[in-house]
Design a protein around this nucleic acid. Structure first.
Lengths: 148, 148
DNA sequence: TATTGTTATACTCTATAACTATA
DNA sequence: TATAGTTATAGAGTATAACAATA
């Protein structure tokens, strides 16, 4: 067990999959807890996050950005609509598509919600220097293939 | 939005939480698919992985290493016992504890299962050099706090 | 015939808590 | 009284597929 490939799986604390799984669980649970303090949850986070970046997306576009199924997007938007945070508007050129917009209340949550996420990230990265943190994010970005 | 903390959350492809979530989903789905080719699934993977590292653990110890709830460990072991891959043995000094051992069939799966995990990791890391991959794992390790 | 979005249904996962038996 | 493990039950999340309306 000495090749490059095997080095990436054993022992446990060297295993990429294990480290990512542990990190994901930790970050998601932490963010969920923090979001609950402001009336949100991890379930609605990806959708709101996408809308804070760009409003007026159709549900299909939202589903792509959140990487969730279209029926999940439908239900998440039902929830967010009931909470008064988003609205479905008729699409200007297609009568079957809908454009999703934030309400004023949804816009108001942006800052405090992003603060919660920043706090999660900072806690997770507490053991790294700023330079190391930037390197980590850059490498994840490169691996995932979303870099520009 | 220019501070170090805010740089770690926006835009999306710079967000640590998003990158980790995407990576985790991708790695878990890929491994699940590959494991199904050899009759396993992602659900039993952490438990088998821990046992391939060390046999004879009690269920409580296994739950700790897999970071799952004790009732999840009970049910996963039920599944693995029905599959003929593990056995519950009486503990030598405690009549209420059980020690978990792999059957020969469970031991035989070790190599091919690890190969599947190695393939997942290699695919995920395909865009990185070996040095970059080692750096990524080292930084994740440091962040999670499991480094020796 | 394909696309956008909704809904019904079932299935898997997980969480809570009660339970047995041991220590 | 605390620990090791099991089980019942309910809830959340997810997957499949059928559906209506529109293109």
């Amino acid at each position: 067990m000495t090749s490059y490939a095997e080095e990436l799986i054993l022992p446990r604390h060297n295993s990429l999959g294990w480290l990512i799984a542990v990190s994901g669980k930790q970050l998601a649970e932490d963010l969920d807890q923090r979001l609950k303090n402001i009336g949100l949850s991890i379930g609605v986070w990806p959708t709101l996050y996408a809308l804070w970046e760009q409003e007026g997306l159709t549900q299909t576009e939202l589903a792509e950005r959140c990487m969730t199924a279209h029926y999940t997007t439908t239900r998440t938007l039902d929830t967010l609509e009931k909470m008064g945070l988003v609205e479905r508007h008729p699409h200007p050129t297609s009568r079957r598509a809908l454009q999703i917009y934030l309400t004023d209340q949804g816009k108001d949550l942006r800052h405090s919600a992003l603060q919660q996420a920043i706090a999660c990230n900072s806690d997770y990265l507490a053991r790294l220097s700023h330079a190391e943190a930037r390197t980590l994010i850059q490498l994840l970005n490169k691996a995932v293939g979303t870099e520009i």
